[in-house]
Every structure is written in structure tokens, then in C-alpha cells.
């Protein structure tokens, strides 16, 4: 496991003139693999890239897309910036929060969903918008949100 991680990160580092540039890609890799960036993972990255642990922790905690604790399998990221909230009477965040029974930053008891309030997703022309993991959803209505969440639930039952 450790050796495998070392190989992967070293390969990431080969892409760059200086290997420190591989830090953010390495942290993203850990998050993809484990669902979040663990302390243990950060320590391994520090050793492999020969960087101080403090440097790795400070970078990891700076970026809002890196999760330092376990999240739901599906992270619902809802834009709450100006345009997305201009165009919905009742904010989407509140609606999804109510329908899943969790608040922003929480995970559903079944571990399936978590909700995050995020900054502008570059979809202002197609507002309101959200991402679920890497998928993007635009021109949302309460109905379409129900449908999207419902179909994820259904796919998880199979």
C-alpha cells in the first residue's frame, strides 16, 4: 500500500519541473481514493515529497474542495452566491437540507449524502446550480432536485 502510494505520487511529481508541485495533485488523489484526506495520508505525502508535515497540512486545509474528515458518499455542493440565490425564491440549500434532514456540513446517518455550501460554480447563466461529487447540475428546480436525489437513492439500492 505504502509502496504503491509512493509510485503513484512519484509519477505525479515527474510531470513537474519541481516535485513540490505534485502536492495538490497528491492530496486530490488521496481524496479520490479514500473519500477524504486523512492525517495518515498527509504524513505519507510529506515523506514521499520530502516536505515538512506542516507545509502539507497548511496546504490541505487551505483549499475548500479538500475534505479533512469523512464525508457522505455523495457530496452535494450547492452554490449560494448572488446569482444562484437571485433566481430561487426559497434557497436550494434550505430545500435540500430539509429534504435530507441534515444541515450544511453534516452527513446523513446512512452515510450516503453530505451537504456543502460552495462558492460560484461558474454556472450563473444556468442558475441555480449544484455539483454532486464531480457531476454538475444546472437550471435546477425543486422537482429536478428531488428527481436527482431520488435516482441516486435508487441506484444505491441495486
Amino acid at each position: 500500500m505504502k509502496e504503491e502510494l509512493k509510485d503513484i505520487i512519484n509519477r505525479l511529481a515527474e510531470r513537474f519541473p519541481e516535485k513540490e508541485s505534485a502536492l495538490l495533485p497528491a492530496l486530490c488523489y488521496l481524496q479520490n481514493r479514500d473519500g477524504y484526506v486523512s492525517e495518515e495520508g498527509m504524513k505519507s505525502v510529506a515523506v514521499i515529497l520530502d516536505l515538512p508535515e506542516a507545509r502539507v497540512f497548511s496546504t490541505a486545509s487551505f483549499y475548500s474542495m479538500l475534505n479533512l474528515k469523512p464525508e457522505g458518499k455523495y457530496i452535494i455542493q450547492i452554490c449560494t452566491n448572488v446569482v444562484c440565490t437571485l433566481l430561487t425564491e426559497n434557497p436550494l440549500l434550505e430545500y435540500i437540507s430539509n429534504s435530507l434532514g441534515i444541515r450544511e456540513g453534516e452527513v446523513t446517518p446512512d452515510g450516503l449524502f453530505s451537504i456543502k455550501e460552495v462558492e460560484c460554480l461558474g454556472a450563473c447563466g444556468y442558475a441555480p446550480a449544484m455539483h454532486i461529487n464531480e457531476e454538475r447540475y444546472e437550471n435546477l428546480t425543486f422537482e429536478s432536485v428531488d428527481e436527482i436525489i431520488g435516482s441516486i437513492r435508487k441506484s444505491e439500492l441495486i
Partner: peptide
Amino acid sequence: IDVFRGAGSY
């Protein structure tokens, strides 16, 4: 050219 992906920061 290489693509470098950020991780969420305005």
C-alpha cells in the same frame, strides 16, 4: 502544456 487542477479557492 500540462493541466493543473486547483482545489477550490477564489
